[in-house]
């Protein structure tokens, strides 16, 4: 019965469900804001500690447009990219080089894995000893942690290159250098991009932590901790939101870039 009579309504239900499917990713966001709002207005949590989402967004916009949010944002972005570029420029070629000799990689594998497993934040005091509390110091420690991620991903990309393609190059008469340039390097790229994407994420994490604890004039990390210290919670939440947006945007940027460069991935 239902199947017979439900013909014309099912069409509109169908187009509606497509719309619902499209809006599905926003559902979680709306839900979070709703719960946040509910908690903020219900009085369960002290108003001083938790402003409403609306107040936070207003603060975010006003601090961005009229305040100095953009200066802090820019400083953090700049440090993150500086760290990332240093890490990528050293990490990719070095990783590829290490990966093309598996024995060479095995000999330094433990070192890479050890420092990769050590939380980079644990090394901040050491870096302060060596590089002081300068801006350079923050960039260097972020670069260091991103470097290891990028390096070992590039190395594994080369190590796990498809053997059949290397053989194909060999049987066509390619020498070692040509095989490296035309096959190994390309074969390693999908994995290298995973390293670059995780690398910029970790660089942002470390830059924020370093800004909080090493101290600086500008930066989102510093802004968050300062706002917390003076109980300017609206600005703290606004800064957290924009930091999250930054992390998300960086990830998306790399995903889009990756899809364009590695057009053959999964095909």
């Amino acid at each position: 019965m239902i199947i017979q009579t439900g013909r014309s309504p099912s069409l509109s239900i169908g187009s509606l469900s497509i719309w619902v499917d499209r809006l599905l990713p926003l559902l979680g966001v709306v839900l979070l804001f709703a719960v946040w709002w509910l908690i903020a207005v219900s009085g369960w949590v002290n108003q001083v500690l938790l402003p409403t989402p609306f107040d936070t967004l207003v603060q975010l916009v006003s601090a961005t447009v009229t305040g100095n949010m953009l200066t802090d944002f820019g400083a953090t972005v700049l440090r993150t990219f500086e760290a990332f570029i240093i890490a990528a420029v050293i990490g990719v070629p070095l990783g590829v080089a290490l990966g093309s000799s598996e024995r060479l990689y095995r000999s330094v594998e433990f070192l890479i894995d050890f420092f990769r497993s050590t939380p980079a934040s644990a090394l901040i005091p050491m870096f302060i000893l060596f590089f002081g509390v300068s801006d350079f110091s923050k960039v260097i420690i972020a670069a260091f942690s991103a470097l290891l991620l990028i390096l070992f991903n590039s190395a594994y990309g080369v190590i796990n290159a498809k053997r059949s393609r290397i053989l194909a190059a060999k049987v066509m008469g390619a020498n070692r250098w040509q095989t490296f340039r035309d096959v190994l390097l390309w074969e390693s790229m999908p994995q290298t991009f995973i390293g670059l994407r995780s690398g910029i994420s970790i660089a942002l994490v470390i830059v924020i932590v370093a800004e909080m604890f090493i101290g600086t004039n500008q930066g989102l990390g510093k802004r968050i901790i300062d706002a917390q210290q003076v109980l300017n919670v609206k600005d703290m939440y606004a800064s957290i939101l924009i930091t999250g947006l930054l992390g998300y945007a960086l990830n998306m940027l790399f995903l889009v870039f990756e899809k364009r460069v590695i057009h053959w991935s999964g095909k």
Binding site: L167, A168, D182, W186
Partner: peptide, 16 residues
Amino acid sequence: RIGYVFQNYRDSLFPW
């Protein structure tokens, strides 16, 4: 000079 055709074209052509 030899020519060689592999069993699996997917793993022997260069997709890039």
